[in-house]
Design a protein around this nucleic acid. Structure first.
Lengths: 261, 261
DNA sequence: ACCATCGGTTCGAATAATGAACCAGCCAAG
DNA sequence: CTTGGCTGGTTCATTATTCGAACCGATGGT
């Protein structure tokens, strides 16, 4: 593994639940020698990807990420464009909506929107990496990947995260086929017990499925009626975001979503 | 210089004016061997900081920056918090407003807002790094840095970017003293000929000056009246953003701005 | 006074980065 | 259809950089 990758992996240690990390912790979490970790952290700090805060000298993500994101949004409006749609989706369904993107080999959440309709809502605090096999977003995205990529992912370990997580590759393949014929993915308690979620795939300008859009609700609140409503809202929002991204839906999906919405 | 820094410097080659870069160009621009550049680019690509687009395989900034920025904004709302104020500043003054942050040893623009009041407006296309000596933002920020940092920066080369650029360190030091007593920095044609700009410093929660806020207008459109209006708007906006950042103004500045607004 | 931990530093050994030369593929000019 | 100059990508021996055990001074709790 290259030095650059090692340095960048430090960035992944920062999460919503753990936004600041001291040098020793950083080294422990990254399984790196403290000296090595210090050098890498110093280089990241010099560039501004992380910064040291206050007298304790702990690290957190730095201002450089803002500049890079602003530049990317200028050229390829992704998050900014999708944000209002995401919030509208949360408002319309009364549940938590989130948007995820395929980054490297992982599916990562990049935006959340909450609804204030209910006092209890699904929070997604420390959820950056969405496991493909255990989440509806993951299944929605996986269903529309090329066979080669899908098989690489299904060949990896598929940890049982809850008693309801599906871990059999064959069973997952069957579900993905269903996702393709229905245009929606559904997961109940596979990632977090008591959370139901529905998701749709999103497509970029080259027709590749590059992300997912999901609505997560407490299991007990989901009825046949609300499921249908969420599906309709997801279809509309998925269509809208894909359009905003300059993408185009596979014709089969477009047809399926039209009937849902 | 470390490998990580070299890799990260590749990211700086992407600008608004040059958002996609091929491998050979990237190597040339970075003054790196093509093989080296390729390895670094591959590592950045694997992480998602850059991505290859289409059949031409050119590189552009990748989706990972969005995730990192979302995480940082969650913990330290900076850009998101300032954005509406920035737009209001542009609307109120009828000119281009921009926000810059001290990142590493450079001052970099992270957000722009345009006004639709006039057909001609100052565009800031390829302006990521704002030279301290030649811009009003730079002078505003430099004026409030600790002596040690200020002297390091003034000790560097101060290129003459236009016929009106001030390049004499002594003269700059004098202007910075004025900035401190007035609470505003002003530059006319020092960075781009025919552009007038006014700026104020911004302060973070630790009382450090960590950025600048500026309004840039075509030189010919600036009158005594509009200058006063811009200063008043800048004072209000600077105050507001500093507050949003949980920062506090140095008492001297607070007093100065109160009289302007 | 003690011990553990913190951020940061040192220096020889070990490893990873480097770059000249080399592919194959593409495209436009001759 | 050949030539030549470009592209993105690859190889491998040389070498410069990274690595990590041990060490430092400071801090904080017992």
């Amino acid at each position: 593994m290259g030095t650059v990758t090692k340095a960048l992996e430090l960035l992944d240690l920062f999460t919503r639940a753990r936004p600041v990390i001291g040098l020793s912790d950083l080294a422990r979490l990254a399984d790196l020698n403290k000296a090595t970790c210090y050098r890498l952290a110093t280089e990241l700090t010099d560039y501004g990807l992380i910064e040291q805060v206050g007298s304790t000298k702990e690290y957190r993500l730095g201002p450089a990420v803002l500049r890079l994101a602003a530049l990317r949004e200028f050229h390829v409006p992704t998050r900014d464009a999708a944000m209002p749609v995401l919030q509208a989706l949360a408002d319309e369904t009364g549940e938590t909506a989130h948007l995820s993107l395929l980054i490297g080999r992982d599916l990562k959440a990049i935006a959340l929107a909450y609804s204030s309709a209910h006092a209890t809502r699904v929070m997604m605090e420390d959820t950056e990496i969405l496991p493909f096999h255990a989440t509806s977003s993951g299944q929605a995205v996986l269903a529309f990947q090329p066979d080669s990529i899908r098989e690489i992912i299904l060949g990896q370990a598929l940890p049982r995260l809850t008693p309801h997580t599906i871990t059999d590759p064959a069973e997952i393949r069957a579900r993905l086929a269903t996702v393709r014929t229905e245009g929606f993915a559904e997961s109940t308690g596979g990632f977090e017990a008591d959370v139901h979620s529905l998701a749709v795939p999103l497509f970029d300008a080259l027709g590749r499925c590059s992300g997912g859009l999901a609505v997560a609700a407490p299991k007990g609140r989901v009825t046949d009626r609300s499921r249908a409503q969420i599906r309709a809202a997801l279809a509309r929002a998925g269509n809208e975001i894909t359009t905003l991204w300059g993408g185009s839906l596979p014709p089969a999906i477009a047809t399926l979503w039209r009937t849902a919405a």
